[in-house]
Design a protein around this nucleic acid. Structure first.
Lengths: 193, 193
DNA sequence: AAAACCCATTGATTTTGGTCAATGGAAAAT
DNA sequence: ATTTTCCATTGACCAAAATCAATGGGTTTT
């Protein structure tokens, strides 16, 4: 149940068996069926969720009811409304399951306790958030500097797993496009080469 | 010379005079004239730069020679090509001074040494990068979910200082627009209210 | 003080993506 | 097995932003 989590952890910081056991006490497993919410806009985000299996998405919904996907998370990724988690303010994102999923939850209390008790946990969190920041900055850069067709190619080469598993209209939403436009971009790419 | 830096540091983590002295040994001040480069695309990013005074921008340049601004940094902000800094890969951003500026540089060696010697430094870095991540995620959300006019308003209310000090064509670039389009959006906003 | 440059604005036109609508196929529900 | 539902695609049309081009106000340079 915790294999992927500790694998990712050890990729960043080495752990003894004892430390692993200590951490385990603070983790809560949770299963989520496809389309179930992990978090709803307006609620306070109570957990950081690590994806052991499955796929989730974080998104906003505008007045017209359109979803705008902010983030996908597959196995090995972490998802939350970090601002809400840290401040206790109501969340501005919804998070739900794109597929049946298995998660590992870290509550605010557990997070703070681990930061206190285990310096390696702080290092893990620091490296984890740093990686997320860099990935986000690259995404932003591709949005402001690449033409649409290049952006789509960049996306599919950076995240081939997401491109394969997730319905196209969600990818369109993630890219800030309508499904029709993404479909046309794809057909242009295929016909041209 | 180090006032703003330690002020920001203490906002996140308290420091004794001794600790402050220790950190100071690892910092290098640097002045930059308007338009001077701090980092050029292709070079390795050797430092994290903290802005004591002035304003910098990080940007890419596409084949047509157009700049795409990824980030601004005013007093109290930090700027670098973090990916290049951490991995030693060539940078993909240029960074230069929008105004005459005073910086505090942290080299890779200094960064690693401080992480080793001073747990509070790691905490500072963790909180700092967390804040940057949240800000970036908000920016991304506004890009994919808000209509242009709202996005501009969001920008000016979130960063009134940048909106005032930086030329409009740079803000257009930061928003992924042409200067003409931003100008028209502004005139629409002013005439409408 | 004049010249050169930078920059914001405005107009005319083109390009690009969005909207509305219909179709067909595949997957899920009954 | 058959009906729904969901989803990708395509077409016609519309709206929005980019491009091209010109103007004039400010700065800075000389």
């Amino acid at each position: 149940m915790y294999e992927v989590f500790f694998q990712k952890f050890r990729d960043k910081v080495s752990l003894t068996k004892e430390e692993e056991g200590l951490i385990k006490q603070f983790l809560t497993p949770k299963k989520l069926r496809k389309k179930q919410y992990l978090l709803q806009d307006g609620d306070v985000c109570k957990h950081i969720a690590f994806v052991e299996k499955g796929a989730l998405k974080a998104y906003t919904v505008d007045e017209s009811g359109t979803e705008h996907i902010v983030q996908f998370a597959l196995e090995g990724w972490t998802i939350s409304d970090l601002y809400s988690f840290l401040t206790g303010e109501p969340a501005t994102y919804n998070i739900d399951a794109v597929e049946d999923s298995e998660l590992i939850l870290i509550s605010k209390a557990a997070h703070e306790e681990l930061l206190q008790q285990l310096p390696k946990y702080e290092t893990y969190i620091r490296l984890q958030i740093t990686g997320a920041y860099i990935a986000l900055q690259k995404r932003l850069t591709s949005i402001i500097s690449l033409p649409l067709e290049e952006r789509y190619k960049h996306f599919t080469t950076t995240y081939p797993d997401i491109a394969q598993r997730v319905p196209q209209h969600m990818i369109a939403s993630y890219m800030g496009l309508t499904p029709e436009t993404l479909s046309r971009i794809r057909s242009r790419i295929f016909s041209r080469k």
